[in-house]
């Protein structure tokens, strides 16, 4: 049986207690939320910790709170299941619910949190392996080795940002709050990520992600298209988070598209072609082409990279067609279908 290394565990009761304990030794302390990413990583000795601080008991990190402004404040410890079951979110943020419902499997969503999903370690099939396996390739850049096996010769790690919620939250313009003993800051979700497989978060190790603020929605629609092999459990090999807003006359006033799982951070697609326009198949196609040119899928996850690149085009095209009410060209993914319909 795969087991954890010896470690200590504590469950702080307040945010202050948490940030204080974290500040004392950020290098060898890890925050434990649902544990669905951290525990496998510790078992495989990717990540190391002498101490785990379980954040499940901290009230500041909980709850789905609609605000008077029309915004919604999501506690980082909110489970993914709670999000898919929230009537408010289902009504106002169906794109988010769709993205979250597509994450892993129902039992994993009962455990996994939205904060953990945003902080999820980047993934790579040369890395998400046992210690023994990694030893047999002499490790790689992301840990002890000196070569990136996906792109030998490259000075950086290309491990994949595999969070399903990140592209969607970035597309709708959500913000995250980060707390530490030094204070609090709020940044855009897209700024939380850095396109580097190792340093993939702009969050400092002593900071806690406390809440996520969803902007008020009016005249905008969002959706999430996820590509993966199986219809459950699997991580995305491509995620398209898209938001389109239009005026009364149907002209597009805002459009944001983020790609997940094709780089070490969600990638922002140039949608300027759509702005101020009435949507057409040609315009959508143009954006899809830009997305394809932007994506650099590498051979470190399921499926061939050429096909995944092609799918960037198909899925961006598909997601935008869905949002713009244009006829579908490809079959939409059926992820999370039931979780949303109930």
């Amino acid at each position: 049986m795969m087991r954890l290394p010896s470690l200590q565990w504590a469950a702080p009761r307040t945010l202050t207690e948490l940030t204080t304990r974290l500040a004392a030794d950020p290098a060898s302390t890890k925050l434990l939320a649902g544990g669905t990413d951290l525990i496998p990583n510790l078992k495989r000795r990717h990540q190391h910790a002498r101490q785990l601080l379980w954040i499940g008991k901290i009230s500041e990190l909980q709850g789905i709170q609609p605000e008077a402004s029309g915004e919604v404040s999501l506690g980082a410890s909110t489970t993914l299941t709670a999000i898919t079951r929230s009537d408010h979110l289902r009504r106002h943020y169906p794109g988010l619910v769709r993205a979250v419902a597509s994450i892993s499997s129902p039992v994993l969503r009962n455990m996994g949190t939205i904060g953990g999903n945003l902080c999820l370690d980047t993934r790579c099939t040369y890395y998400n392996q046992s210690e023994e396996w990694r030893r047999s390739i002499d490790y790689c850049l992301k840990e002890a080795g000196d070569t990136c096996w996906v792109a030998p010769g490259s000075p950086r790690c290309w491990a994949i940002s595999a969070s399903d919620s990140a592209p969607l939250l970035a597309a709708i313009g959500a913000k995250v709050s980060l707390h530490s003993v030094a204070g609090e800051r709020e940044i855009d979700v897209e700024k939380l990520f850095v396109d580097d497989g190792i340093q993939y978060l702009a969050k400092r190790p002593d900071e806690v992600l406390t809440r996520i603020r969803l902007p008020a929605v009016s005249h905008s629609r969002s959706t999430y298209w996820k590509l993966r092999r199986r219809h459950s459990i699997d991580f995305p090999v491509l995620g398209v988070g898209a938001m389109v807003a239009s005026d009364g006359g149907g002209r597009i006033t805002a459009a944001r598209v983020f790609l997940g799982a094709v780089a070490s951070a969600p990638l922002s697609v140039d949608t300027s072609a759509l702005l101020g326009q009435l949507p057409t198949e040609e315009l959508v196609h143009t954006v899809a082409e830009r997305a394809r040119d932007l994506a650099t899928p590498l051979d470190n996850t399921d499926f061939t990279l050429q096909w995944r690149r092609r799918m960037v085009h198909s899925y961006v095209d598909g997601a935008l067609r869905e949002l713009c009410g244009l006829p579908a060209k490809v079959v939409a993914p059926r992820e999370g279908r039931f979780a949303i319909e109930v």
Partner: peptide, 25 residues
Amino acid sequence: ELGECGTCTVLIEGVPVLSCLVLAR
């Protein structure tokens, strides 16, 4: 023991969770 198969599922407070990913603590 890595959350990938569901075999170890138990209920905590009535909710299915993977016992291989939950510390007993």
